[in-house]
Amino acid sequence: MVRDITFGQYYAGKSLLHRMDPRMKLILTFGMIVAIFICHNFYSLALMALFAAAAVVFSGVPAKMILKSIKPVMVILAFTAILNIFYTKGGETYFEWWKISVTEKGVNTALFTVIRIIVLVVISSLLTYTTTPTMLTDAIERLLSPLKIFHVKVHTLAMMMTLALRFIPTLIEEIERIMNAQKARGADLESGGLIHRAKALVPIFIPLMVSSFRRAYELAFAMTCRCYTGGNGRTRMKQMKLHARDFITLFVCLAVVAGIIVLNHFFTRII
């Protein structure tokens, strides 16, 4: 549900992955996604898949949840598989009929791509399963803070992100409320052509804008009252600290990448 956006698909837990520093987690997730694309053959890809499986185990996120995150990409998976099977030619021909043929290379590429996408989805969804959007925003703010010397307003951007995360559920509730009120006055939002429907949104959009401005105004007061004057001189309650577990995970990831490079080197390339 959209309303759960603040926690995204966060799965509460206390696993190794949950307790990792979000900055390290973010960097490693990016790193490992790149690593997926370095894999050239089934051996290195198998190592990568093994790593992803291990990460799932260490995250404590149930397999059911992981499968749920793969579900939305099923169509893409099927599509890529079909395209690759029929359009990539080479090697032994397994099957031929009229203009359609299935070759060894086609099957291999299809399989390879599908596994690659699945691993990609699993790794990136592990990040969102074990990290709340708020923690992610904080991590991004801290990682980008060196950009301050280039006068990039990192704090302001992060504050805007946080406020967006905070207010999206509130605004969604508000939209529901306004929609119900206008429906109760006979507003017809479901039928008619495109123009009619666009017009029907006016009674919802205007009150939403009015109330959003009011909220923004009040929020600005409330923030002023709590002595908010921007990022300067601000401290943070939650400090991000790198622990042994973060370095161990980093080491494991480096080892996997090294393994991938070695396996790429010793076995023939599939892609």
């Binding site: 709340t132 708020t134 946080t162 406020l163 905070r166 409330a222 709590r226 401290t235 309650m237």
Partner: peptide, 15 residues
Amino acid sequence: VATVVEDDVAFGPEN
């Protein structure tokens, strides 16, 4: 302002 209760309470002292 924050998405977690304790972070919100911390907002003032942080400022």
